[in-house]
Write a protein that binds this DNA or RNA. Structure first.
Lengths: 129, 129
DNA sequence: ATTATCGGATTACATACGTAAATAATCAAG
DNA sequence: CTTGATTATTTACGTATGTAATCCGATAAT
């Protein structure tokens, strides 16, 4: 069955595309990935193909040059993140989100601003209860 | 190199062992996995071998029966969770734990008790700042 | 018009993983 | 002591993933 979400490295490609409002050609994607993902252009094109196969990316053919595809996302970042998160919490924390959050807070340095943000988030959820 | 943490299904095996204070034989592990992971004993033994190869599990040989190994964890659950969490946040949330937490809270239903727990956790972290 | 180049598709190969059968070593039972 | 059962190891195979070369068609350059 396999997962319907992008893999770790495929994610870097998706980040580039999600940032864009419209669509991007493979060359544009490769250009924007410079410095982030230092692998061969060939490899990136293979990954783009796999993202299309996964149904995460769609494309339209260029009107002037039929070889060139314009890629655009078929799934939103939020959608994918939610799947990833749900699966992660389920697998490693028995589905208990608060345990996962605890582990996160321990594993990463967090700023005061982020803590306040979190506090507000928890507050908002409490009120909805 | 690959990751040094257990994979998703290997995790189920580790859960069984982490729950134990001492060590467990393969048969005991298989027995305790009944209902949780319904695959062949053969498969479970292969996975145990891979966990040993990964350095997550160690073993001692039985004194009476040299065929039987007693497996015990070489890494704690907390240690592995921290690695998993760090990697997850880094890959999918650009290292921003508060974004990850937000996604988690959205992707899972959470109880009031857990929310209060979270609140306390955030409070404690704020004070340490 | 022939050649070089560019883009997507196909093929390739290693590692990780889920899954399990075959093998070999060893203990237990008759 | 031979046979049968048990246990760990080895081998196997399909899919996913990271990585890249090759192939083929189309455009661009000479």
């Amino acid at each position: 069955m396999g997962e319907i979400t992008p893999s770790e490295n495929e994610w870097l490609i998706m980040e580039v595309i999600w940032k864009e409002s419209g669509s991007l050609t493979a060359s544009e994607i490769i250009e924007k990935l410079k410095g982030t993902l230092d692998i061969s252009k060939k490899t990136i094109r293979v990954m783009i193909g796999r993202l299309v196969a996964k149904g995460v990316l769609g494309y339209t053919v260029d009107e002037n040059d039929s070889r060139i595809y314009h890629y655009f996302p078929l799934k939103t970042k939020e959608e994918c993140l939610e799947l990833k998160s749900r699966r992660f919490v389920k697998n490693y924390f028995g589905g208990d989100a608060s345990l996962a959050v605890a582990s996160f807070l321990k594993s990463t340095d967090i700023t005061k601003a982020q803590l306040i943000e979190l506090e507000e988030m928890v507050e908002a959820l409490k009120e909805r209860h």
